[in-house]
Design a protein around this nucleic acid. Structure first.
Lengths: 124, 124
DNA sequence: TTTATCATTGACGTTAACGTTAACTTCAAT
DNA sequence: ATTGAAGTTAACGTTAACGTCAATGATAAA
């Protein structure tokens, strides 16, 4: 059971971020006798999931939808499969970005060779 | 020579976007006798560059800096060496981005497996 | 020439994801 | 018991990248 600051520090975020995530329904930590937030391991696990999702370019709203679908639909797996498909679509998009960057890199290398050639011409 | 709407439509953006890009110094189209913006092929080329940069996740500010550097390099032909140096730096940066994206893709596949595993647990 | 669009500048509105401040309350250590 | 750090809610502030008027001028089609 950790406090809000301990949790925040261990995940590299601010307390405000944790309160905000709770505000939009992404986290639901417990409360102490004095009404202070207490974060259990399940909360930490969910936070880890959220931060990973963010890293992968999902908006908090998208992450919320995926988590809610998962929570609400434990018996019906149809929605869950759709969540997975959604993620796989994202992966394919990333693959596209990678290949485009590779193209850009090759373009730039060609552009550079043009100048390197000019430089050599001036040396001679 | 195209009007603002023609240009916007052909690039899939709105006129507001083009005015905004001009406002922050990303585009500098000419003006007609009646003070209306006219977009030449150079402007279209630059717009293409901007949109490609956006697609790769660069902010407009980052794109602005890159374009300014690019312009400096092109006008100062005496600084060929520095141009090449800059280009090589950019290529190394792009290589970093590519490898980061590849890592991201792998991690994301792991993230999805979290859901897929839960799916299998429900099956049993 | 008269519409019917289209364009211009200026200014305020919008959304996401928090930051910041205020005015308290609770906790931990002395 | 006191004090200083940390927590609470509520509400307003911030930034990027435009969206959306409003008032007015320019242009193209019939």
């Amino acid at each position: 059971m950790k406090s809000i600051r301990e949790t925040a520090v261990s995940f590299g975020v601010t307390p405000r971020t944790l309160r905000y995530y709770e505000e939009i329904g992404l986290l639901t930590p417990g409360r102490s006798s004095g009404n202070q937030r207490v974060y259990a391991s399940q909360d930490a696990a969910r936070l880890k999931l959220i931060l990973r999702g963010k890293k992968y370019g999902f908006s908090l709203e998208e992450i919320r939808e995926m988590i809610l679908l998962f929570d609400e639909d434990r018996s019906g797996r149809k929605q869950l499969e759709r969540s997975i498909e959604y993620g796989e679509k994202r992966i394919r998009e990333i693959e596209t970005v990678i290949s485009e960057f590779q193209l850009l890199k090759e373009e730039m290398e060609g552009w550079l060779m043009h100048f390197e050639q000019k430089l050599k011409e001036e040396e001679s």
